[in-house]
Design a protein around this nucleic acid. Structure first.
Length: 896
RNA sequence: GGGGACGUAGCUCAAUUGGCAGAGCACUGCCUUUGCAAGGCAGGGGUUGAGAGUUCGAUUCUCUUCGUCUCCA
């Protein structure tokens, strides 16, 4: 049975049993503590912890998940994959243990003809928490599972919590016996390879307290509303139903593996035993490729782009690991263009957007491979020099420091270092390498820990949020009378704030828009009770909590005070223009460049907007003009801006654009400009008609990373002012150059050209003037101790580099077969500049320009120095020049 | 968020305790040669990313800033 069919049957089974089908949340999730969604229940957490009322009693989903903690183990074992899909069913205070167990059992064992998975019930085992008699009873008496296939397990295996105080509870896991080929008898306690876990049922029934370790915490009491959270591993079920050993061999990954094998002329499984730990390194590499390529496809599909931090870094690592695994298999060409289309064909049955979005996805992924190839090329040269150095020193071990530096600074993977070192007959000090890696890891960890305790998720916010949601009325009103619900100073709840303090204030309701969706926070005032608060920033640290950072400009403010909140209307008007302008620019970009140019981030504030979008190359002038033209035509057309609320699914149906990485509620706000002309999910504040935006002018276009470009524009009055400025500038230049504006370009380039020629000419003349006296000075050469010596005062005003040129020229005029020494001084604005130069013959005779300078410079009271062939310096008293030159003569005759 | 490295001619890169900014390829001209990565000679091309500091003197050292690459969290 194919994975897509497993998915379909799963959802159908639970939908038929009263569950609402909820689409998968995007992988990048709106939670600072979570890089990616890593379990099916993540998007339902607010319902489980009671922060929000669940809109449905029962839900089911197939959730995309990513786990990278064990990325090094991928391919080596059968159980680790970086991407997987968790099929789940959830109950929020509705059905509990009996129903959950029954639903799971039914679907697992129902015959395939009847829409089930058709597993043999006699080969299913269940584990339960050791004292969960209720679950044991259900398994045995209701389902009919014999007692010998019900296994009691401890807290580590069969008790679930989120790792922090909150809901928790026992679990029950379903295992399938894959038969004696896979390992010894005896159930999951003996061998979890033969007995494969495929479904975990969590019975959320208790409250847990704080604890020190993973399974050391008190279980406090029973929850008032009990919940069910289950997870059936899609890949595991697929492996069972497709009769393959592991998740790398199911229908959604095996074709990628086969493609990699055929490219590299490998035969998968040729050298490996049946058990996972008997895998040949090539087989491990093939599995890594299959796993990582699929994961990367899903990540890029969900809007993640490679970068050097956060989510983007995880993606980069995965892509690069895939590429270098191919390299280790012997494939040096571009690998991703061969593999991504295969991965797309594997996954698009369940995720059709991968096919429609494929051009954008590959643009990002392939350009990352190009970047990596450049990195590898640079690293290889550095590697080669390191190897030559090691060989030259007669050693046979490449130091760990070298391997670490290659990895840390130049991004050259250590496994490639190992492989290439071996080709040169060298080993690598891996112990030192790992020590350095650990040091770096600890540095980063210590830092992030120090950072977390500093600010982060303050409990004060949580307390305030528990008092209820802040009501946002800013879509319709800019002022309101309301009460101060709480004040936070330095992360602590306080009751009062004095004049001059900067604190955070939470109100019962607010017209202030908190920064989100790229729109900057509102500015304005909060007054009342004799106090005047200037609003500096507005943020939403928790869902449903709006926090105003304010400066207490006058008076004092206390909790409970009735205040008047007033958004600056001018500010808001401009902010609305900018935000609507962003949508218009986005639509215009997609109209001109095609649907690939999808927004990946934005920022807008009064008068200004910035939009990042997926695109591989710089926009030329004509394209920028086109985008501007389309945008401004939309403004002129005076399109109506409308806002409506609808279910997320409906919004997707009508093609509303959703931003990557944003987490949307099931009920979303859709902003339309001219109906279908621009349709985006957005919580921002907008104008009523596009003409109110006024004007839009692009002022910059740049790159923000591989495959992402950024446009910046001015909006409304700012756009007009910008253009007016430009016009004034052009007029000024036109007037100065005395040419019409249209001819400025030509005029400037001829001017620059001419200036350059004249400067060259001037330079030549100056040098010629300096060198004019060279012959005369050279003729003043004297013989001192068998050496030619020119030690003279050059004309005044010949400074630094010119003096050097002169000295070298004079030196060139002397007999090169014999030692020649030139020392010149010059009076430059009351300071002496001097140069000494010795020809090669003179250096051989033991005369050093540097040493000479050190001898006579003190006579002048100056400093200088240099090398044997040339030395120079400056400073001191010009009247001592003759004395200094005399020192030179004495020194030369003495050295003879 | 923390660490490392790099910004030099159109491109790829040099420049030994701070002391004449170079090479190869590309470009222009001439010569040689009937051509398909030809040879010779000559030449043009630089604000050493930007700004400040230390110094007689900074591509080199220090600080700031911008950009690129990279590792870790």
């Amino acid at each position: 049975m194919r994975s897509a069919e497993i998915r379909r049957r799963f959802l159908a089974h639970f939908e038929a049993n009263g569950h609402t089908v909820v689409p998968s949340a995007p992988l990048p999730f709106d939670d600072p503590n979570l890089l990616f969604v890593n379990a099916g229940m993540v998007q339902f957490v607010p319902y489980f912890i009671g922060q929000q009322a669940a809109p449905f009693k029962r839900a089911t989903s197939v959730q995309k998940c990513i786990r990278t903690q064990d990325i090094e183990e991928v391919g080596k074992t059968t159980r680790h994959g970086t991407f997987f899909q968790m099929n789940g069913n959830f109950s929020f205070g509705d059905y509990f243990k009996a129903e959950a167990i029954k639903l799971a059992w039914e679907l697992s064992t129902k015959s395939q003809d009847d829409g089930g998975f058709g597993l043999d019930g006699d080969r299913i085992w269940a584990t339960v928490y050791f004292d969960d008699e209720e679950a044991i009873d259900i398994w045995h008496r209701v389902i009919g599972l014999p007692m010998e296939r019900i296994v009691r397990r401890g807290k580590a295996d069969n008790f679930w919590s989120m790792g922090i105080p909150g809901p928790c509870g026992p679990c029950s896991e379903l295992f399938y016996d894959r038969g004696p080929d896979y390992g010894p008898d005896g159930g999951p306690e003996v061998d979890e390879d033969r007995y494969m876990e495929f479904w975990n049922l969590v019975f959320m029934q208790n409250e847990r307290g704080a604890g020190s370790t993973k399974d050391d915490y008190p279980i406090l009491g029973e929850l008032p509303a009990k919940n069910i959270d289950t997870g059936m591993g899609m890949e595991r079920m697929a492996a069972l139903l497709q009769g393959v050993d592991n998740l790398y061999e199911i229908d959604e990954t095996r074709p990628i593996l086969d493609k990699a094998a055929s490219l590299t002329n490998k035969r998968y499984g040729e050298h490996s035993g049946h058990a996972a730990n008997q895998s040949h390194p090539d087989d491990v590499r093939l599995r890594v490729v299959a796993d990582h390529v699929r994961t990367a496809l899903m990540l890029v599909g969900d809007g993640v782009t490679p970068s050097n931090e956060g989510r983007g870094y995880v993606l980069r690592r995965i892509l690069r690991r895939a590429i270098r695994s191919m390299r280790l298999l012997g494939w040096d060409d571009r690998a991703l263009p061969e593999l991504f289309p295969v991965a797309r064909d594997c996954m698009s049955a369940s995720y059709p957007e991968l096919a429609t979005d494929f051009e954008r996805i590959t643009m990002i992924a392939y350009s990352e491979e190009e970047t990596f190839r450049r990195t590898l090329a640079a690293g290889t040269t550095i590697f080669d020099t390191a190897v030559t150095a090691v060989k030259a020193s007669g050693a046979s071990v490449l130091p760990g420091e070298q391997a670490f530096k290659l990895h840390d600074t130049y991004g050259f993977p250590v496994d490639l270092t190992l492989e290439m070192a071996a080709e040169h007959g060298l080993s690598v000090d891996t112990e030192a390498f790992h020590r350095l890696m650990t040091e770096q890891r600890e540095r980063a960890k210590a830092d992030s820990k120090a950072n977390k305790s500093a600010h982060g998720n303050s409990p004060a916010y949580r307390q305030l949020r528990d008092l209820g949601e802040t009501i946002f009325i800013g879509y319709t009103d800019l002022t309101t009378e309301t009460a101060v619900r709480g004040i936070v100073a330095d992360g602590e709840l306080v009751t009062r704030a004095k004049e001059g303090q900067i604190v955070e204030v939470v109100l019962d309701e607010t017209p202030f828009y908190a920064e989100s969706g790229g729109q900057i926070a509102d500015e304005g005032l909060i007054t009342g009770d004799g106090a005047l608060l200037r609003v500096l920033d507005v943020q939403k640290p928790l869902k449903g909590l709006i926090v105003h950072r304010v400066e207490v400009a006058e008076g004092e403010i206390g909790t409970g005070a009735v205040v008047h909140a007033q958004v600056d209307p001018e500010w808001r008007r401009s902010a609305r223009q900018a935000h609507s302008g962003t949508h218009i620019m986005h639509a215009a970009l997609r109209q001109v460049l095609g649907p690939t140019a999808l927004q990946s981030g934005s920022y807008n504030k009064p008068g200004y907007l910035r939009l990042d979008f997926a695109w591989g190359s710089a926009l030329n002038e004509a394209t920028k003009r086109d985008v501007e033209e389309v945008s401004n035509r939309a403004l002129r057309a005076d399109l109506a801006v409308t806002v409506q609320h609808m279910p997320l699914a409906r919004a997707r149906e009508i093609g509303a654009l959703a931003l990557f990485g944003e987490n949307y509620d099931t009920d979303v706000r859709v902003v339309e400009i001219g109906g279908p002309w621009s349709r985006e999910l957005c919580g921002g504040t907008h104008v009523d008609h596009s003409s109110q935006v006024g004007a839009l002018t692009i002022v910059g276009e740049s790159s923000v990373g591989a495959g992402v470009r950024r446009v910046e524009a001015f909006i409304g009055l700012e756009a007009m002012r910008y253009l007016a400025n430009e016009r004034a500038l052009v007029n000024a230049v036109s007037e100065t150059l005395k040419v019409p504006p249209a001819e400025i370009g030509d005029r400037v380039s001829t001017l620059v050209e001419r200036l350059r020629t004249v400067e060259k000419e001037l330079e030549r003349n100056r040098v010629a003037a300096v060198l004019a006296g060279a012959g005369a000075l050279a003729s003043q050469a004297q013989e001192v101790a068998g050496k030619q010596l020119v030690a003279v005062q050059a004309p005044a005003g010949v400074a630094g580099n010119d003096l050097r040129t002169l000295a070298l020229n004079i030196r060139g005029r002397l007999d090169q077969s014999r030692p020649a020494v030139v020392v010149l001084t010059s009076d430059v604005d009351g300071r002496v500049h001097f140069v000494a130069s010795v020809n090669p013959s003179g250096q051989q005779a033991g005369v050093s320009a540097g040493a000479l300078v050190k001898e006579f410079a003190p006579v002048l009271g100056a400093r200088g120095g240099g090398k044997a062939d040339l030395a120079q310096g400056a400073g001191g008293d010009p009247s001592k020049a003759a004395d200094a030159l005399a020192v030179v003569v004495r020194s030369l005759s003495a050295s003879a």
